[in-house]
């Protein structure tokens, strides 16, 4: 089936089997291998991308369902030599060890900060109204869809909070 995806600002028309997940379309059809396959069941978050402005698990949706949709992958945030602030913060704070979960962590954190800026509460927010201070507890709850088997969580949390302007370097 033909489907057109707008990825990192560029349109691509693919011919895919309807079974192809958006993740496999990115990796196998477009060579955008920055997005990782971990569990392939929505449990680990390694495949997180931003779809029409929202972070999602690309393993749990079909490419053919996204004809005309806008997708941002880790390649669209920055590249070596011109990293974006979140990517730089992960490097500075050792927010990884093996690095496999890192693209998903960074895409998820990027989408998450946008949710915070829109005033979305979380399960651990004391109030459903008003501004959300991005405490460690808030970051942990909002990032619970991203696992890191190397357990680089302290660095991940520091990188995210610094990028959000909650803590200084």
């Amino acid at each position: 089936m033909q489907t057109t995806l707008k990825i990192n600002g560029e349109s691509w028309t693919l011919d895919v089997d309807p079974r192809t997940s958006l993740l496999d379309a990115l990796r196998h059809h477009l060579d955008l291998t920055g997005t990782k396959k971990g569990c392939d069941h929505g449990q680990c978050g390694a495949c997180t991308i931003i779809l029409n402005g929202r972070r999602i698990n690309s393993c749990l949706t079909l490419a053919v369902m996204h004809d005309g949709d806008e997708i941002t992958t880790i390649e669209g945030l920055g590249e070596p030599g011109r990293l974006n602030p979140m990517q730089e913060a992960f490097v500075r704070h050792d927010g990884y060890q093996c690095g496999y979960c890192t693209p998903g962590q960074i895409m998820s954190a990027t989408g998450m900060l946008d949710e915070v800026s829109q005033g979305w509460p979380s399960h651990v927010s004391a109030s459903l109204e008003g501004d959300v201070p991005l405490s460690r507890e808030e970051v942990a709850e909002r990032m619970s869809g991203n696992l890191c088997r190397c357990s680089a969580y302290p660095g991940i949390v520091r990188a995210i909070r610094e990028t959000a302007g909650e803590v200084s370097e």
Binding site: G45, S122, S144
Partner: peptide
């Protein structure tokens, strides 16, 4: 608010977006 709280207690940010 009980509905917001129940939704926020389920799944993850990525899953709730879908």
């Amino acid at each position: 608010p009980v509905l917001s709280r129940a939704l926020l207690a389920g799944a993850t940010g990525q899953l709730r977006n879908k």
